[in-house]
């Protein structure tokens, strides 16, 4: 859940010449190994904290692990990487997650 250990998209060091290459390609753990996948979304899930009972079912079912629990115990969605599958909204027993159509380019970092 912590961000500290892994590289983020664009942070990873890349080679600039064949002379820098190690004998075999090594890939390092990276948030955004394919980029900022938040821009895949057609719909964005939005959590209404007033309805949320902190059951964490959304956290459990999120395939992408973009739902993180904040210090107050509420789930928060990382829109940089959320692909908008809407499983969380579909599975929320309190119907606390709303499906909102993306209007413009999703916000990056």
């Amino acid at each position: 859940m912590t961000e500290k250990k892994y590289w983020k998209w664009k942070e990873i060091e890349t080679h600039t010449s064949i002379n820098d290459l190690p004998p075999v390609p090594l890939s390092l753990p990276n948030y955004g190994s394919l980029g900022e996948t938040g821009d895949w979304r057609t719909f964005r899930p939005e959590i209404d904290k007033s309805k949320c009972n902190k059951c964490y079912i959304c956290w459990m079912y999120c395939p992408e692990a973009v739902i993180e629990i904040d210090k107050d115990g509420y789930p928060n969605i990382d829109y940089v990487y959320c692909k908008g599958c809407m499983i969380c909204a579909h599975e929320c027993p309190k119907k606390a997650i709303e499906q909102v159509r993306e209007k413009k380019e999703p916000e990056g970092e």
Binding site: I12, T14, H15, L21, V24, P25, L26, S27, L28, P29
Partner: peptide
């Protein structure tokens, strides 16, 4: 030291792209 070995690399073009080696 978690390292992934052998994941996909793109063909690439005339410009250097990090995923094309």
């Amino acid at each position: 030291r978690p390292i992934t070995h052998g994941n996909l690399q793109n063909p690439g073009g005339p410009n250097i792209d990090p995923s094309c080696w």
